[in-house]
Design a protein around this nucleic acid. Structure first.
Lengths: 129, 129
DNA sequence: CTTGACCTTCCCCTATGCTGGAATGTCAAG
DNA sequence: CTTGACATTCCAGCATAGGGGAAGGTCAAG
């Protein structure tokens, strides 16, 4: 199938397919006589995998690693497990950071809600921040 | 004081000061005869405010709004309170999203940790994702 | 007189994952 | 024969908050 059909089948755009090929996530597509890219079902499988990886918050670079391992014939499962572990740790760190920020902002907001704007110190930009 | 001293006093870089001026967060600096920027203590106050705002996760655009209100003579406290409320809501949404992602990734990771790589289905890129 | 530490403007680069558009080619249908 | 829907390549941009470095001006000290 041609690029438009493949993109539609994978629920993405032709731009994205060319972009992935350029980034090495998809192998260079076969070309028909007129230079059009030609895709098979394996490309769709690959695109779906990429989408699942994205949904799990993996970067294209990480997904590319997995695909490269797969393409070299080795089972990437162990690597995937490690990536997932790292992703889990990253997410926990991000969540902790955001939660701390949230608490700080909540404190500011509480003060701001309780205060009277008339009390605002003209020497500060804003007393609440 | 000149830009280098001001930057050091505010704990930032000269690049950042010029950048903020360009973005309207700092008023165009006075210039001495040789064209050098000249700063007073109010600039430091402003820079410190910007830093507090950044630490609260506000964007430069939002901080700019506050400063503009302040420069027009009105007390920006009410606006600050609203910005903080919005920021709080944003943070809660982000945290919820990350937490959901974290759970999904944890599920994948659990499966990956339990499985045997030998079971990997050759027809899939990786059975664990 | 020169060196070194400042300062100026200017433009490009970073990371991420695409998206838009221009200029051009291909091909089946009416 | 032309129109329209495809396809190709390549270049540019988004949004964020600056950083890097070039080419050059200024000024005090040695």
């Amino acid at each position: 199938m041609r690029i438009g059909e493949a993109a539609a089948a994978a629920g993405t755009s032709t731009k994205t397919l060319r972009f992935y090929e350029d980034r090495g996530l998809l192998p260079p597509a076969e070309r028909t006589g007129n230079g059009y890219r030609e895709y098979g079902n394996d490309a769709i499988t690959r695109l779906e995998f990429i989408r699942r990886g994205r949904a799990a918050g993996l970067t294209l670079a990480q997904i590319g690693e997995i695909l490269t391992l797969r393409d070299r014939g080795s089972a990437p499962c162990t690597h995937v497990r490690d990536l997932l572990a790292g992703q889990l740790a990253d997410l926990d760190a991000q969540i902790a950071e955001l939660a701390a920020l949230r608490d700080a902002v909540a404190g500011f907001h509480h003060t701001a809600s309780a205060g009277d704007p008339a009390d605002c110190d003209p020497n500060r930009i804003c007393s609440y921040l």
